[in-house]
Amino acid sequence: MFKKLAGGLLAGVAVGVMSISAAMAGELTVYTAVEAEDLKKYADAFNADHPDIKINWVRDSTGVVTAKLLAEKNNPQADVIWGLAATSLLLLKSEGMLEAYAPKGVENLDPKFVDKSTPPTWTGMDAWVASVCFNTVEGGKLGLTAPKTWKDLTKAEYKGHVIMPNPNSSGTGFLDVSSWLQMFGEKDGWAFMDGLHANIAAYTHSGSKPCKMAAAGEIPIGVSFAFRGAKSKAAGAPIEIIVPEEGVGWDMEATAIVAGTDNLEDAKTLADWTVTKKANEMYNSGYAVVAYPGVAKPVEHFPPNLLEKMIDNDFEFAANNRKAILDEWQKRYDSKSEPKG
């Protein structure tokens, strides 16, 4: 029996060794926060043009991926970041973690979607826009009218019927908070959030969960993003995707090469491909707004007026004030015993 156990041990060690030898030429470790259901499609489309480069995805929510990258600051595991919030990439840029590289064809992109440094350290892919998911069935049962503006959400009738992502753990939550502060100004922004907080049933950890909860009728109103709403609506959920009239916050998904990658050539090939028209057409299947002008086609269930409602987002403001905003938010709202700041 002992021999059998020893044999098992050896087999185990052998498997361990096999899984260690991962980093090889022709393979890229790509960190991403793109929705899991789209990843296969992205890799397949890329491999149609470059079958010799295999993509190993590391997929997680925006916060987790950012944390992973920062934790690995002195020993990066990723070769490329493809599909992470620009706010996060700015953070990584200021740590000197991104390789400056102008992908071939970057000049075709809307300059709003490209890093201002020369050469740029990151290039945008598509925009991801906040909106409100309203469950018409549950809303009807409770006799709620659909909100039209952000300020509507502070009305007493919605008390306990609104859910939003916690900005301390969700990128979507943070873009909401930063957009309110930019739109309403510092003072009125916090005053608005004080009012909203009184109506919030819970803050979720992830940005897509509020809309999925609204889709499942668990809550009538979920502050989330339009892409998630369109998907849930397509899946048959009785929801309406509302674009508040004041304007909506947004963030873009972007691509960058990680400084120190031992596979720079393949990384550049991938970066070149991510700015192509073909890639942007692919991004368009889930996002109404993409970096390549003229590519965007209307997406099913996407609110038609979304584009004009996107605020003029100041990403540097968001990145450089991130900690101060999150600290203030936490002080005001992140403790049940002290709901008012």
Binding site: G63, A67, L70, N168, S169
Partner: peptide, 10 residues
């Protein structure tokens, strides 16, 4: 989890 994953405050 929130400190590490949400705020990257190790």
């Amino acid at each position: 989890y929130k400190q590490v994953i949400g705020q990257q405050n190790f």
